[in-house]
Design a protein around this nucleic acid. Sequence first.
DNA 1: TACTAATGGATAGCCCGACTATCCAGCGTG
DNA 2: CACGCTGGATAGTCGGGCTATCCATTAGTA
Lengths: 211, 211
Amino acid sequence: MRISQLSAESGVPIPTIKYYLREGLLPQGEQTSATRAEYGPAHLRRLRLIRALLEVGRVPVAAIRRVIEAVEDERTDVHTMLGTAHYALASPPEPHSAGDEEWTRARDDVDRLIAGLGWRVGPFAPGRDELAQTLVTLERLGMPATDADLLVYARTAMDLARDHEMGKIPFDGPRDVAVETLVICTVMYGKALDVFRRLAHESESARILEA
Amino acid sequence: MRISQLSAESGVPIPTIKYYLREGLLPQGEQTSATRAEYGPAHLRRLRLIRALLEVGRVPVAAIRRVIEAVEDERTDVHTMLGTAHYALASPPEPHSAGDEEWTRARDDVDRLIAGLGWRVGPFAPGRDELAQTLVTLERLGMPATDADLLVYARTAMDLARDHEMGKIPFDGPRDVAVETLVICTVMYGKALDVFRRLAHESESARILEA
DNA sequence: TACTAATGGATAGCCCGACTATCCAGCGTG
DNA sequence: CACGCTGGATAGTCGGGCTATCCATTAGTA
């Protein structure tokens, strides 16, 4: 398959495909001569993954590249690779001053919460900081989150992960498929959940206010 | 309170505050003379809301403005106002060609699903299109979502909304507080849920792969 | 009363991220 | 052998979210 065909099948313009090649999101095609390269179904597949993450997940190109680098580093084991991919999807919180009391306390709360749940989460998981930032923000807004509230969300997330999501991941298959599935699952069903939540709010609001 | 004090208390630089004033995110202060204006606690509160939506929710400035316009339009009733605010938070999907078969089918699936759940959602709720786009994307990725999958997420969202979220909204209080609470709740707990999901994935991955 | 620093208002510029446009030399098929 | 497409490189565009500069005015302070 030549680049024009790749473009036609995916709907992505040729200059954009070249951009993805430059950025390392898409592997180079197999060179058949100085001015020809051959692309295969794997490229089409990768291209669809990129567009899905960009358009539905609003994942920045730099984060997609980090995910892909995790896949292509053959030295790491599957768990590390999944972890790296997952960490790459995080959106780093605003930098905060190191000695921020409020912030340190929130971060401690998060660590205690995760420990209390018995979750096996790395000490440097970016989610810890993201959650701490969210807690600080809620406090500043005058609506501090209670532990009970947080536990509800944590358990909801774990129920979904355990019963409906991790089961889809083919751990025994090729490593790239495992990562790809994990990322798709995280991003796409994350989006779906987000949308359902907003729809549910609208529906409940209608029910309450029209009564 | 003068602008410099507003800046000091909120941590937002003065030029940025001026930018928000220009963009209509922040109401003008009360003019006390040609070159003086007085800002009150409401401004500080609004400023914190803006920063929360921007930093934690990654909500674009234009969407925040739409939310605020909904609040300030005194003519609409509370339900319409909440709806407008909610619609403003949606991230519109990529435009699709009108005659796209695949897309129309997905959109029908979404409408049927929502009707089947008995949810009271407006026919033009942007979430319908967002969900349709997500379904199309999942199909293109070769991992189509089943109705059973979607129902799990829908019910999870509704359980959270009914039992833990809508109860926090003070429908009987002033309208701006109701909208503000709804938006904060949607965005901040949405973020928390998202983070918890990623942490749960990591934890489950560790449990499965280290066994 | 003179001076200084801050204010509100306006305009223009900056930076980043995601493309998009142009150019060029070398194929390779008709 | 001509013409169109290819890969590769470089530069330009566009939108979003600020940020910098300037200016006339004026509240404090000396």
